[in-house]
Design a protein around this nucleic acid. Sequence first.
DNA 1: CGCGACGTTGATTTGCCTCAACGATTGTGG
DNA 2: CCACAATCGTTGAGGCAAATCAACGTCGCG
Lengths: 198, 198
Amino acid sequence: MDNALREYFIETAGLTDDQFDLVKPFFAEKIIRKGECLLSIGEINKYVYFVIGGCLRTYTTDSRDKEYILRFIATNEWLAEVGGYMQQEASSVYIDAILDTHVFAIHRSDYDTLSNIVPSLRAHFQSVMQLNYLNTQKRLALSLSADAKERYLDFMKTQPALINTLPISMIASYIGIVPESLSRIRKQLTHRHSRLTA
Amino acid sequence: MDNALREYFIETAGLTDDQFDLVKPFFAEKIIRKGECLLSIGEINKYVYFVIGGCLRTYTTDSRDKEYILRFIATNEWLAEVGGYMQQEASSVYIDAILDTHVFAIHRSDYDTLSNIVPSLRAHFQSVMQLNYLNTQKRLALSLSADAKERYLDFMKTQPALINTLPISMIASYIGIVPESLSRIRKQLTHRHSRLTA
DNA sequence: CGCGACGTTGATTTGCCTCAACGATTGTGG
DNA sequence: CCACAATCGTTGAGGCAAATCAACGTCGCG
């Protein structure tokens, strides 16, 4: 069942059928169970993942072990940026699965090989990374300028598919508040909404 | 007076003397006056800058025109990431000079040419961008997890050279608080410090 | 059935913002 | 040379958004 992978590489990454056939053998299909940890801080990440379904996250913790989610990696997204694309550096984040997650994984060394076999892939990977960078920058600006309600509304707008699949506590951690606060914000929004639609 | 540029390219970017001589002609030296604007949101950035002295910033504004600084670009740093390395996209940020700033500028098209002439430069530019990405991610985590005092302490640790050269209001904007709040934090820290060193 | 995880609600506290006023410094025109 | 306005950093009083701490309802699961 690699249709989703084929579709992505051909429609989004712009590969030909032949090129995809060259690329495919490098990928190993894998199911990661909810709660399963892929990487801890300080470890070296050996794999690049492409998510077909489910959801991974990267996160760090503060001095009191409270978790802060840096990024969700959901359907049709890559997890590759940790410690830089090419370098084998100690990770500055944790990675685990929030839901049962269906991925295709390639080894880092194959990742380079692959970029050489299909040159347009290198540009694609680079543009994926740039998008991630811009998104992170946008989120930083948002976390500096916007209050919790605005950040939640932005989350609903930019990642609507995740709202009903992820636990509240994960979303709260993503936007940087405690679950109790998010609960109050949601209550406030549904009340306002029901008033508007009444 | 291009010694600083030569030093950077040879010692940090790892070029040979000959390679630097190939690269040098592409750069135009320039002084940007304090307050001068280099780019507004929506415009397309045509240049890549390398800062020899002084300080630039990238920033956005919220709905009430309050400014939020995304990044300082100080001595020996590149300003190149906006809208992605290669693409000519509408900028999502403003860029201006906080101090009188001494830069070397190259045109975007030359930037590509240059990466082809000296292949190792491409890798260097990429690693610079990755570092920026990781820094932004780290700052995001910090803005989600740490209070204002911790963020200020982190700023002092990571960019000590800027503490005494930039106005308080710029530093406050960078760490996401109003100048009054930063003033109170500084007061608190100096009192605590004088107690410790008394 | 009872246990634990999750989301909600309430009471209280707190960190930071807002608004306002005040010295210190710098630049400008008479 | 001095008076002045303007800018910048500081200080104070009051308010609000979100955290903390605690309790409770609900659901899935052993």
